[in-house]
Design a protein around this nucleic acid. Structure first.
Lengths: 334, 334
DNA sequence: CTTGGCACTCTGCTTCCACGAGTGCCAGGA
DNA sequence: TCCTGGCACTCGTGGAAGCAGAGTGCCAAG
């Protein structure tokens, strides 16, 4: 059905359309790419590609533009990842290494990705559930109020206030701190319930009420529904493609304001090591049907970019992959 | 020069234009507002207002729209703050009280403000320099690497990694923790340099190198240039006024991506208790000359909204003030 | 299977015109 | 002195018409 030349035509259409944002006609295409055939032949191929649903017409007498399906084929079979240049790699590395803490790493990654790809960038914080506990601190804020501070190996710091029913002494707090600390150090949050289940029984009776309050907060807010966080940046890049989003910019911005939506975008990554590309209507998220998303896991989390379906996929995939690698190294090393 | 009726005309123009987004003509104005005078009279007043620079024409045969100067006069002398309704107040309070930690408070405030005002909302995290140290924890990450965790009374948690030149023992870390803790507990970060200046001398000689490293990190990254943070939300609201930003949406989004810019917007608040309004060209920030900003301090930080100059100022001022009050209470109480 | 030719169909742009909103000015009246 | 009705004028908007150009689909010949 689709011989090599037809695929070549599709590739040319995608590349031209991505760079010019204008429907591409048979004549221009035959000239600019060295296909060695006449416009008429190209037209025949185009008709075939259109029959198969890879390209379409905006209107009768305009050139062709790729459909979502066309981009899909392009990404899967017609393109190869554009690797970054060595200077770019060095720049990424030095920029990321300048970060002073986890927040800074994430913020820098977002900025980096959005500048490299000229798209919207999304970076997830290292997931809590997969993280190891490096330190658990209990601060005695008030007689009946404690602050739990959890530090993970990926550098995340989570805090929760625990309201107690009665007052508790500094000494008791120390005991609890020691108890919890010894149990949890080095554990992942997934292990936590098992590690803590018998703790109230093992503790001195006087401390049990307090311990129970503390545990319920730990389990409820850190284990059962661990808070996932994401950072986003480069939204200004959406306006560059104002032509791509006739009236759809609104819903896109709205969707991007929702943490839940962003997490879904990043979370649909099954295999964490390969780059995933969602194109147009493949996105189930409301409001993002006219966008494409390129994501990849970096170890304890995921990151990616979002832009119009008319996107430089090879470049985006290359950048996303490279940044993910550096971020992954950085976070597992620190 | 400007008698009461002229001011009334200006007020009517501002209110009409804000609600309809269309230049307002003399006839419609004379009818809809009970001015009791003829369109011709209104026209004369309009001419006077235009001479004074309070209103202008988009083109010869269109109605009038307010200038920045007109809005300024409106805000200063012709409008009164629109207080929130009791149900609204209750909703704010319950929504904010549901927050589990500082990040959550800030995120909720942003969402609240942007929904109340239908504008872009900006909320600064409580400033570090004005905060009191509630707890300073030192975690021994590796033989020659420490993690400092600073918790302030406003709930902020800052972390910094300290790389040491040589290994240090757990016991030494405990000593340093105790030393620093006793000195800093209850101090503000502004007091810190004074409180710590003689510390190396007072400490056991063996610990001095380590202590010096720790102190230099504390002073450099927490005191000398304390990290200010801001959260932003509701950018989708900018598209609602696509008519207001003909082609200027781009620079606005770009400006909003810069933490520095946001801090400048919020930072120009001198008197922290009153609401400040910057209108259009009054904004020195590049790219925001077509927007207005309404800000107020809430105690340890500031918050505000940003939108087109065509903004419901009384409503925005009311919302900003109310939210600031609740946030302030919440953060000083917690 | 490829190619050149040709008729056809659109869109985008320009021009033109009529309409209507709104203004500025003036002269008369309170 | 100020308000008012009247009137001529300006100018942007919107629809109709016409034109040029790009691009297509199809066909018959190589």
């Amino acid at each position: 059905m689709l011989d090599d030349r037809k695929l070549e035509v599709l590739r040319a259409i995608v590349e031209d359309f991505v760079s010019t944002n204008e429907p591409v006609g048979s004549k221009a295409l035959a000239e600019r790419h060295g296909l060695g055939v006449s416009p008429a032949t190209v037209r025949n191929d185009m008709a075939a590609l259109e029959d198969e649903g890879y390209i379409t017409h905006p209107h009768t007498s305009a050139g062709r533009i790729p459909t979502d399906r066309g981009y899909r084929l392009f990404v899967d079979r017609l393109s190869q990842v554009k690797p970054l240049s060595p200077p770019e790699r060095r720049a990424i590395q030095t920029f990321l290494e300048g970060a002073v803490d986890l927040d800074d790493v994430v913020r820098r990654s977002v900025r980096l990705l959005s500048q490299l790809t000229q798209q919207v960038a999304v970076v997830q914080y290292p997931s809590l559930s997969r993280a190891e506990v490096r330190h658990l601190e209990i601060v005695h804020l008030a007689p009946n109020r404690l602050l739990l501070v959890l530090i993970t190996d990926s550098g995340r710091v989570e805090q929760r206030v625990v309201e107690l029913h009665g007052a508790v002494s500094d000494e008791d707090v120390s005991v609890i701190r020691a108890l919890l600390g010894s149990r949890l150090h080095g554990a992942t949050l997934l292990d936590t319930p098992a590690k803590l289940s018998d703790l109230p029984d093992a503790a001195p009776p006087a401390l049990r009420p307090v311990l129970t309050s503390v545990l319920s907060v730990v389990l409820a807010s850190l284990v059962d529904k661990p808070e996932e966080r994401v950072a986003i940046g480069g939204t200004a890049n959406l306006t560059r493609s104002a032509l791509d989003f006739p009236r759809t910019l609104r819903p896109v911005l709205e969707a991007l304001e929702e943490q839940v939506v962003l997490l879904r975008l990043l979370g649909e990554v099954n295999d964490p090591t390969t780059v995933h590309v969602k194109i147009g209507e493949e996105n189930v998220v409301e409001g993002l049907q006219s966008t494409s998303v390129v994501t990849v896991g970096y170890g304890a989390g995921a990151l990616g970019v979002l832009g119009p379906t008319r996107m430089d996929y090879p470049g985006a995939i290359g950048s996303v992959r490279a940044v993910a690698r550096y971020v992954g190294d950085l976070l597992s090393g620190a």
